[in-house]
Computed example of a mutant assay.
Amino acid sequence: MKRRVIPDLFTALVHSIVGQQISTKAHETIWRKMSDALGEVTPEKVLNLPPEALQAMIKYDSGDAPRIQHFMKVHDFAATIDV
């Protein structure tokens, strides 16, 4: 079995939050958008994203409205990290 290993704890947590309650395909699509836009996913980069930009990255299909609120926890969590 092959499993992705993310050594940075913040990045691993964000990856986990993004993947909650969605399909593997949606998770990979959203994670690719975030990785492409941010490069390394760090608290600073997440905090510097306007919420609208994060929402645009995590949009996957028309049923995403309830999920967007869940994903915004990433932005809120980044604010709690002491950097």
Rank of each mutant, 00 (worst) to 15 (best):
G19Y: 01
G63Y: 08
D82F: 05
F77Y: 15
F77A: 09
H75N: 06
A79N: 04
I30W: 05
P51C: 12
D82R: 07
T80D: 09
L9T: 11
S35D: 15
I68Y: 01
R4Q: 10
A79S: 12
H15N: 12
K25I: 14
K33Y: 03
R67F: 10
A12R: 09
K45C: 07
M34E: 07
L47H: 04
P66Y: 15
Q21V: 12
L38S: 04
L49P: 00
T80L: 07
R3Y: 08
V83L: 07
S35H: 14
S16W: 13
T80V: 06
E28P: 00
Y60K: 04
G19Q: 00
R3I: 14
G39V: 05
D61Q: 12
V74S: 05
F10H: 02
I58G: 02
E44G: 12
T24V: 15
P43Y: 01
W31N: 05
K25G: 07
T24K: 03
V5W: 10
A26W: 02
K2T: 07
R67I: 13
M34Y: 07
Q55S: 15
G19P: 06
P51F: 09
P50I: 09
F71N: 01
R67G: 08
A79K: 13
N48H: 14
V46N: 05
K2G: 03
A56F: 08
L9G: 02
I30V: 15
V18L: 13
W31M: 10
A65T: 14
E44H: 12
E44Y: 14
V41E: 01
Q69A: 05
E40M: 00
A56W: 09
F71P: 00
I30S: 03
H70N: 09
V83T: 10
M34K: 03
T80E: 11
A12P: 02
M34F: 05
Q21K: 15
A56P: 07
M57L: 11
D36T: 04
F77I: 09
E52S: 11
Q55H: 10
A79T: 09
I30C: 06
T11G: 05
S23V: 11
F71V: 03
I58M: 02
H15I: 02
M34I: 13
R4W: 07
D64F: 02
Y60V: 05
S23Q: 09
Q69S: 13
P50L: 03
E28Y: 14
K73H: 10
D8Q: 13
I17D: 04
P66V: 15
D76G: 11
Q21S: 11
D64Y: 04
K73N: 10
S23C: 10
T42P: 01
W31R: 02
R32Q: 14
T80W: 08
P51G: 06
L54Q: 00
K45M: 11
G19T: 06
R3M: 10
V41Y: 02
I22P: 00
N48D: 12
D82K: 08
P50R: 12
R3H: 00
G63M: 11
T11L: 05
I58L: 03
K59T: 13
V14F: 04
T11W: 03
K33E: 02
G39W: 06
K2F: 00
K33D: 02
L13T: 08
R67A: 06
V18H: 02
F71I: 05
F77C: 07
H70S: 05
T11I: 06
Q21I: 13
T29L: 12
S35Q: 14
A78Y: 04
S16A: 11
S16R: 12
R3Q: 06
R67P: 11
I68V: 14
T80C: 02
A26C: 14
P66Q: 04
L49Q: 01
